[in-house]
Design a protein around this nucleic acid. Structure first.
Lengths: 202, 202
DNA sequence: CGATTCTTTGAAAACAGTCAATCTGTGTGG
DNA sequence: CCACACAGATTGACTGTTTTCAAAGAATCG
């Protein structure tokens, strides 16, 4: 039943905000959240954002998996982000500055999302302490994670980066095809195949 | 005269906050800023942060240049960040979570810094609208910049990354020795030397 | 089942890293 | 002020890794 499903979707976000903010979400705050976010389902292979468009929405991933990537002159895809349950996805630059994005975001699996605009997010941040805390923590974790990724990309070999992923995001390896993992690591699919073979026989 | 110099240092930060926040800094706000930040000079080669220590301070760079880097098992340095005038430097993870840092930060030139602790920053953000706006914008830019760097590292060749740096941060090439630029780009100094030769004769 | 997409493998070519030697410029102490 | 030392940059020869191209083998989906 569609109505019942949507209730569950919002509950997922409520749970997430309570856990992240460390404080339970009051009923008033939950109302604000429900007003701000729209539920939206997208099918596998469907775009959430296409390069050239402005990224008008940010999405909280209730269920499913997406990727953010660019396409270069030669038609090669470069994946800069994987998102799964309880992660947020948007092109931050485009979303906050309302400029056209250079990235695509599409669904790797059928997805259930809760989406909001930049204004709605700002309104929520202003009016819900729990949500504000959540976003602050999120920003912080995001910034730490990207720093780690930069560090990995300049200081580690491809093999070590793969092992790192295996260690820290083993679910990625199950949910995303290997050619996408390769793109995410910045290497060719063939190289990843060989690295995997070598690394896993230890 | 030491007193006069310090006045100028704070003026640099005041100017920065006015420009960044888009609103002039009131005298009250400026007082808060002056109370929160301590002026500190460090000499070339001196550490601002050593790996293993907690990064207790964030610094606004009034003058000079610094780098943030890790040292791996083989003793190789990997530079993840260069800071010059009007930039901020700290190890964000260590600074906000008060955990020991894996990074070093040291001065490449003699530096004039304005430093503050995490509590002082939070206090300022809470009590000065202009400062709050500045930090929000800063976070945003920082996050966009790191995303660009990740994208560059997985999608561009070493040569293109060098040309990108030449285009977007030409001052880096003048102020930091080439072996450090190489470390920042994630390549060996010899490779950078050859790339440079090839790229600049066009 | 057939078709498409993904993965693996092989061989050759391109690329970046390492090591060692030389060259250049800077700054310091005699 | 010179000479020397030192750090950084360049070059060459070699090694090792990654990419590319092509083809064959799995796996998945309609």
């Amino acid at each position: 039943m569609s109505n019942q499903q949507e209730v569950n979707m919002y509950d997922a976000l409520r749970k997430y905000v309570s856990e992240y903010s460390g404080a339970p979400v009051t009923d008033e705050e939950f109302e604000l959240i429900k007003v701000a976010f729209t539920s939206r389902k997208i099918r596998k292979k469907q775009y959430f954002l296409q390069a050239g468009d402005v990224c008008k929405y940010i999405a909280f991933i209730v269920k499913g998996a997406l990727r953010q990537y660019s396409v270069d002159d030669k038609g090669l895809e470069h994946i800069i982000f994987f998102g799964i349950e309880n992660w947020w996805v948007s092109d931050r630059e485009s979303f906050t500055m309302l400029t056209p994005s250079r990235f695509n975001i599409d669904a790797i699996e059928d997805c259930e999302l809760l989406v909001a605009t930049s204004e709605q997010m700002q309104h929520l941040v202003s009016n819900s302490p729990a949500f504000r805390k959540t976003i602050a923590l999120l920003d912080q974790r995001h910034s730490i994670a990207t720093q780690k990724r930069i560090h990995a990309s300049i200081s580690m070999t491809a093999e070590d980066r793969f092992l790192d992923l295996l260690q820290n995001n083993p679910t990625f390896l199950q949910r995303f095809p290997q050619n996408m993992i390769a793109s995410y690591l910045g290497i060719s699919p063939e190289t990843l195949s060989r690295i995997r073979k070598k690394a896993l026989q230890k």
